[in-house]
């Protein structure tokens, strides 16, 4: 497997930010009451991650090592402001649903973590691929979490009724505790699947 492909796939499964590294958890739990919100949040974060990782990788030799963290934060904050204002203009409904979590992308440990751990050391191409993989991994995790909570909490998926009529929605899944419980069980399911896969390859 080539380096680029490995970098891309890593974020999707083995080092999935939400299920494996347990970073970027606040938006993962805070906005995933529906699948759409989860995916919207995931894409907004991916945009910021991709732009800031690429830019940081380009100018990594100019930034003095001592002030690198503040510099990264300013770069990230700039892209977050762009994302925040654009969403407010083009997708006001989603922007309202995500609320305070859009400006909070700036303190998402996923973005700063990738900048410090990867983009600051790697060439531009690999940094962008890594950011894209991590961003998509984050997006599918949020989509899955939102999907599970929407399905069990309201009986709908993407605002379409999918559960049979006799299904009684579990109110708790749409409420805050449901977010913690769903994530706990999804992490466990991920562990079971990974254990099975390792057994097969071994």
């Amino acid at each position: 497997m080539t380096r680029a492909k490995a970098d891309f796939l890593r974020g999707l499964w083995n080092e999935n930010p939400v299920f494996r590294l347990l970073i970027g958890l606040c938006p993962a739990l805070g906005v995933t009451s529906t699948a759409i919100n989860g995916i919207g949040m995931g894409l907004a974060t991916s945009f910021v991650l991709l732009c800031s990782s690429t830019l940081i990788s380009v100018i990594k030799n100019i930034i003095p090592a001592k002030v690198r963290i503040p510099s990264y934060i300013i770069i990230i904050a700039t892209f977050v402001t762009i994302a925040d204002l654009s969403m407010n203009a083009f997708a006001p409904e989603l922007h309202r649903a995500l609320g305070v979590f859009v400006p909070l992308i700036v303190v998402n440990c996923l973005v700063l973590g990738r900048s410090e751990a990867y983009a600051s050391k790697m060439p531009v191409g690999l940094a962008a691929i890594d950011a894209l993989g991590m961003g998509l991994g984050f997006t599918w995790a949020l989509g899955a979490l939102g999907g599970v909570r929407e399905l069990l909490g309201t009986g709908e998926l993407f605002h379409v009724q999918v559960m049979p009529a006799f299904f009684e929605p579990w109110g708790i899944m749409a409420a805050p505790p449901g977010a913690f419980l769903s994530l706990g069980f999804l992490v466990a399911i991920m562990n079971i699947i990974s254990a099975r896969m390792n057994k097969k390859t071994a």
């Binding site: 347990l22 505790p177 913690f180 419980l181 994530l183 706990g184 069980f185 992490v187 466990a188 562990n191």
Partner: peptide, 9 residues
């Protein structure tokens, strides 16, 4: 992590 999330729930 799994059980920690469930406890937090």
């Amino acid at each position: 992590a799994g059980i920690a999330f469930i406890i937090a729930g």
